[in-house]
């Protein structure tokens, strides 16, 4: 089989898996909807039943957000791990989640969380994330050159500082504010604002297209920055652009769904084991797999103790971490 045919098979397989997971996610929940009914509603539209509202107003938006956020975080993880040549880097390692959490926490405590309606909390999260990103950028850039290890260390330190400030604000917060803060930090795909859903879908898809312009650059980065330069990659410019792409992907994801850890760390690593490290197939595979993973995790989160719901971040952490350790130990055992 040629390389291209092999890659197309992987993508096709992931699309089939995505369709399967989406279908299951549409069907299961506090109210079970039979597959036949889902097909009928998808084909014939509104029949006036409660199923229609559950399907199109509750479950479908969650699935769309789940796919967009999962794929965006996974894509950001692949790009960052490739750029930093470090498997432990993920979108949140750089302190982005800490900044977002601090932004939201301050917004809630200062009672400015409803100034602009439902968009205020996501906007505060996005602003917090962006503030941290630019702070890291300006602290790490010397003479217009980005030092990757400098960025990583600065990011980790800022993450610690943000966590400490977050705890400080929590300690000073009123009891009634604590629930909102804690729930947001655990992540949720419950979002009724279609404008926000559109934003994350567009950011996620544009992010994939933009990343593909740099897939060969990322392959060259695997050899190290100097080797990439020898292969004709303008590494200084490429690093800056990739940093902006990952920042936007992460910032938008945090804004819409809160902090959902592990997706950007675990999925790129697992997909790399399955399809190899060539970013020409890795980017698209990790993108689809990230979406599939988050939809699956969200489905588990809302069905496990239905009608109550678990925070999706809890499921991604437990499921992702366990699968990650299993795959890693099997992979090492096989060597």
């Amino acid at each position: 089989m040629s390389k291209l045919a092999g890659w197309m098979s992987v993508i096709l397989l992931l699309f089939l898996l995505l369709a399967g997971v989406m279908f299951v996610a549409l069907s299961v929940g506090a109210t079970q909807i039979p597959f036949a009914k889902i097909l009928s509603l998808l084909l014939h539209g509104n029949d006036g039943s409660a199923y229609y509202s559950i399907l199109f107003k509750i479950r479908l938006p969650r699935i769309i957000i789940g796919f967009a956020v999962g794929s965006a975080l996974s894509l950001a993880g692949v790009i960052l791990q490739g750029m930093f040549r470090n498997p432990l880097v993920e979108p949140y390692t750089l302190g982005i989640s800490g900044g977002a959490a601090l932004g939201v926490c301050l917004g809630i405590v200062l009672r400015i969380n409803n100034v602009f309606g439902t968009i205020t909390i996501p906007a505060l999260g996005f602003l917090g994330a962006m503030a941290v990103i630019w702070l890291i950028y300006f602290l790490s850039v010397r003479k217009n050159i980005m030092n990757l290890q400098g960025i990583l260390l600065t990011g980790v330190m800022i993450s610690f500082i943000c966590s400490a400030l977050f705890m400080l604000v929590m300690a000073l917060a009123r009891m009634e504010d604590l629930h909102g803060i804690v729930f947001w930090t655990m992540g949720s795909l419950e979002q009724s604002d279609w404008n926000l859903i559109k934003v994350i879908v567009i950011v996620s898809m544009l992010g994939l297209c933009a990343a593909y312009a740099f897939c060969k650059d990322l392959n060259a980065f695997a050899l190290g920055e100097e080797e990439a330069l020898h292969l004709g990659i303008a590494t200084h410019t490429t690093k800056k652009i990739l940093f902006v792409i990952t920042s936007l992907l992460t910032g938008a994801s945090v804004a819409v769904a809160g902090i959902i850890g592990f997706v950007g760390l675990v999925i790129p690593h697992c997909v790399r084991i399955l399809v190899g490290s060539d970013h020409r197939i890795l980017l698209a595979s990790a993108y689809l797999a990230g979406g599939i993973f988050l939809i699956a995790c969200d489905t588990i989160a809302r069905t496990l103790i239905a009608p109550m719901e678990l925070p999706v971040g809890v499921v991604t952490g437990i499921l992702g971490g366990t699968v990650f350790i299993y795959i890693l130990s099997r992979n090492q055992g096989g060597r």
């Binding site: 490739g82 040549r85 470090n86 695997a222 050899l223 190290g224 100097e226 080797e227 020898h230 790399r272 190899g276 490290s277």
Partner: peptide, 14 residues
């Protein structure tokens, strides 16, 4: 111009 360094350690399996 191509360069051959003392050692190349690709980070990912290749």
């Amino acid at each position: 111009i191509a360069v051959v360094c003392q050692e190349v350690n690709p980070y990912f399996d290749i």
